[in-house]
Design a protein around this nucleic acid. Structure first.
Lengths: 235, 235
DNA sequence: CTATGTGAACTCGTTCACAGCT
DNA sequence: AGCTGTGAACGAGTTCACATAG
């Protein structure tokens, strides 16, 4: 088998790159952050007072022991040599490093099937993510409620986001409105955006952008399928 | 701003790694494949008889010209020096390389909100992906139809998948059943799996696995938010 | 003697600069 | 002159081996 670290795609600005509000904090590699989140989930199902070895954790998380230790070396981790890691201590440590400590307020724009799936997604709260506002542009949806949150008109996003202290935005709208929605959210003070809409999206410097493109994911699988069909071009 | 190539997460087997049905085909880097898919989308909105420069395409796709050309260098691409790329020729070339040529049949397991969102997702057909079978374990859902496809009992997956010639499977079930569903699909001949369920998933060697973990994506944004809060530890 | 922590080699991917067509 | 194609430098991330602490 071949486990690949999922995908991606950048869709944002040309290069500008590293700029950011805070200066280049010499810190945890993004790839490591992703894995730390996974370790956190694995740790969650273990008794708080217990000790695990890197081998055990790695096994559960699907990575290699050495890699796991490398990841943990980025935090002020405190494993005990010859023994292992205290589940409680390690959990706290990762939480602190990753920001699962403080809670972040997120806005969700676009309440089609995908948006509703996201709205209903558990595991948000567990990770310190609080969905604080819902937006859509469809008059038929505006005003209705999902759970105990009302769906606001996307046009009101700037005001609502500020009022709710939202810093993270999720875009689950059709491709056409994605850019406009992003602009609106950013105007509301959103500094990190997770975009599910296909197509390029541009955000101002200082705003963090991540994309998940379903079509691209599938396309990559298709690629591997195709490759299977033609073992080797011609040696 | 900081555009990051999206995420990920492995969750699969420990290492086994590179093994695969076909021998290591010296071929296109995965990162490049992801971008090629994007270029394809950009190209789709251009007149077939037209010529674009790497600069123009790169601008639209959100990458740098040099990088784009590097990507294109992996295929038998034929740009004309001093001029640019023929939209038609380039499109065909990418299609062929990526496998958007032949059509792949995919099975979708789990028809909750996310599953339905996926089932309704356009852009599949456009990319040569055909949803050929739907599965769920909920008796209330089995037998109903979405579009013109009936929802089958996941237990029938092996038979149905083989009958339908399915090679790609999408798992949109709750975490608890993910592993079992994966096993079932694989038994039905599925060779590539896209997993949306959190938690680790193990597939046999030779089966390609990709994961999209919403919680992890969000967690990464939260991380950047947190980092923003503390500019620099203490110089 | 066990399991952690990490420097150093290595692999993969990105960036750049420029040579080569047209 | 203009834009493609790519070798070579660079950087990020992964793997490994081993020194180190309990």
């Amino acid at each position: 088998m071949t486990v690949k670290t999922a995908a991606v795609l950048d869709g944002g600005a040309p290069s500008a790159a590293t700029s950011d509000t805070s200066r280049a904090v010499r810190s945890i590699p993004e790839a490591t952050v992703a894995r730390l989140a996974t370790y956190l989930r694995v740790l969650a199902v273990l008794p708080a007072d217990a000790v695990v070895s890197s081998a055990e954790l790695a096994e559960s998380a699907g990575v290699k022991p050495a890699g796991l230790r490398k990841d943990l070396s980025f935090l002020d981790s405190q494993g005990t040599r010859g023994v292992g890691y205290s589940v409680r201590a390690l959990t706290d440590s990762i939480r602190r490093a990753i920001g699962a400590g403080r809670s972040h307020r997120v806005a969700l724009a676009g309440l089609g099937n995908l948006g509703q799936a996201l709205a209903g997604y558990a595991g948000f709260a567990a990770r310190g993510l609080v969905i604080a506002a819902l937006f859509d542009a469809d008059p038929a949806k505006i005003g209705r409620r999902i759970g105990d949150l009302p769906i606001h008109d996307i046009a009101d996003a700037p005001a609502v986001c500020r009022a709710e202290g939202v810093t993270i935005g999720i875009i689950a709208t059709p491709e056409e409105c994605a850019q406009q929605v992003a602009d609106t959210l950013v105007r509301g003070g959103v500094r990190s955006v997770l975009d599910f809409a296909p197509g390029p999206l541009r955000v101002p410097p200082g705003v963090e952008l991540r994309r998940v493109d379903l079509a691209v994911e599938l396309q990559i699988l298709a690629f591997h399928e195709t490759r299977r069909a033609s073992p080797v071009p011609a040696p």
